[in-house]
């Protein structure tokens, strides 16, 4: 329920022997497949975007417009995605939630990736005591339940989109730190790094100019996966009652709100659910394509 999938995949990558991937495909097909996967991913990600663009022009109802008599409708021409327990139009609501969902997800990953990269780079590059301290810290952070972190930020600092982003962003730091750290540990022993050090390049320069570009695609792949994990994590947080405020809804929040009424009208739950699945699946494909490209680069 945390960013565990991301964490797991990285660990799996460590277990996997990248060399063996070569056996799976011929070189050209790897590239081919990466391109295909990227293409499919982009199309999946494009579906909600197109719907969103439509909703900018075609917006028959207000986002919070209630009509209790029309509640629990199934999908129809009048209500594309049906209506919820107040008779609000699910399509209009889902589309108004689209930018916030994306913003939350990007925000969480920005925080996670930014601080995770710094921590990971420092501990991977300098290793030793610093690495030990950071490793223990990230390990501890991984064990802190999301509900506590959510409660800390939502209750202490008022509930809002930013609080949710910060709370979950912190939860995402360890997985990014691990990815960057493992990449840096791998490269720091390489001859070219040693050569640079002998030539008197500063550590900062080596880290940012030389090492980060090397793990760029690995990080991109993690970002794409993190994007989807953030949507799932936000919806889980909403499920525990600690998500975004009701006037700045996300798909996760919609899902949570509809959960109490699934037996009366399921469309208010199923459509935000489908949108989440589409987006997450889309970013999986994109993530895969980056990973394949990364493997290709390595060989």
């Amino acid at each position: 329920m945390k960013l565990t999938t991301g964490k797991l995949n990285n660990n799996l990558d460590q277990i996997r022997n990248p060399k063996l991937k070569r056996d799976l495909y011929t070189d050209s097909s790897v590239l081919n497949s990466a391109r295909k996967q990227f293409f499919i991913g982009v199309i999946l990600l494009g579906i909600p975007l197109i719907l969103y663009l439509i909703s900018l022009i075609y917006k028959p109802y207000g986002v919070t417009e209630m009509n209790p008599l029309d509640r629990f409708q199934g999908p129809s021409v009048k209500h594309w995605f049906g209506t919820d327990n107040y008779g609000r139009d699910v399509f209009v609501r889902a589309m108004s939630a689209f930018p916030i969902t994306i913003f939350v997800s990007l925000g969480i990953n920005f925080i996670g990736c930014f601080f995770g990269s710094i921590i990971g780079a420092l501990s991977g590059y300098f290793a030793g005591v610093l690495d030990y301290i950071f490793s223990r810290l990230t390990e501890a952070l991984l064990s802190i339940p999301m509900i506590l972190m959510g409660l800390l930020f939502v209750s202490s600092f008022g509930n809002g989109v930013i609080q949710v982003i910060v709370a979950l962003g912190i939860m995402f730091i360890p997985s990014y730190a691990r990815i960057v750290r493992s990449g840096f540990l791998e490269y720091r022993q390489r001859n070219f790094v040693k050569r640079l050090q002998l030539l008197g390049s500063s550590s900062g320069r080596i880290i940012f100019k030389h090492l980060f570009p090397l793990i760029k695609s690995r990080l991109l792949s993690a970002l794409a996966l993190g994007f989807s994990n953030a949507i799932l994590a936000e919806s889980s947080l909403s499920f525990l009652g600690l998500g975004v405020p009701t006037d700045q809804i996300t798909w996760g929040r919609m899902l949570k709100d509809a959960q109490g009424f699934v037996f009366q009208g399921v469309s208010a739950a199923i459509f935000p659910g489908i949108l989440i699945v589409v987006i997450v699946l889309g970013s999986f494909f994109v993530s895969h394509s980056f990973k394949l490209r990364d493997q290709e680069n390595k060989l």
Partner: peptide
Amino acid sequence: SVACQDSSDSE
């Protein structure tokens, strides 16, 4: 199909 089946129930 799950979605539609249930919305007809609710109607």
